[in-house]
Design a protein around this nucleic acid. Structure first.
Lengths: 117, 117
DNA sequence: GTCGTACATCGCCGATTAACGATGATATTG
DNA sequence: CAATATCATCGTTAATCGGCGATGTACGAC
């Protein structure tokens, strides 16, 4: 399935942006992940996958939730996959998606900040 | 300065995506914020602003950090502003930017997740 | 084998975007 | 006042993106 390896380990990169500036080398990978979430449909897809009971969802349950064609949903799922936010797994006729929780946690940590007052 | 009000209160919206699916009405605003961070230059700008000593940075200190023209940096700052991630403030000749920490915290919370193992 | 279903990929098109140079607005200085 | 500096806006261009229909691939049923 040609999983493309992330250049940077999501667990180690990076310090919260309120603590230190993101190094240029890391900015690309981080921005790619945020960019993948920067579409309403993809954000909903990601949240449906991440919050799914049992930790995974069949594409057949995702597609009918939107007023979009199959190829379009497939396209968005591919973007999420290539960003390393989700993983897919074909079992028989159906394809199942699950969230990469470590990646989500890393992104959350990057945005974490002490809120004043 | 025509600050455009967010449709949804960043402090109340939303539950972590690993907990519940993002409502369609909220997906747009959330995705817009992530989209703004989905560019390497903007992510670096945001991190430079958020981590700045004193909580704010002059544009004059941001522009020379990139191999880009002034208008291009101005454009990226505008995107960050319209996404509600930063606020600007002109004082004399210079314009100062500071991060909207509440918004960053809200986005961090949305991505927060319990990591297994 | 032939069908029908479930997704992915391909190719195309209209809309959006990042980048630039030129121009404009605002503030300080002489 | 004129001149300079900072930053935003305007207008253009090349590239990217989201959407679709058509086609391809993998699987189960027959």
């Amino acid at each position: 399935m040609s999983k493309r390896l992330p250049v940077l380990d999501p667990a180690t990169c990076c310090a919260p942006i309120a603590t230190a500036a993101v190094p240029a080398a890391a900015a690309g990978d981080l921005a790619a992940a945020f960019k993948a979430m920067g579409d309403p449909v993809r954000l909903q897809l990601l949240s449906m996958i991440a919050s799914a009971d049992g930790g995974e969802v069949c594409v057949c349950d995702l597609t009918p939730a939107f007023d979009l064609t199959g190829p379009t949903i497939s396209h968005h799922l591919r973007v999420l996959r290539e960003a390393g936010l989700v993983d897919s797994d074909r079992r028989g006729t159906w394809v199942w998606y699950r969230a990469n929780r470590a990646k989500l946690a890393a992104l959350s940590a990057v945005l974490d900040v002490a809120v004043p007052g």
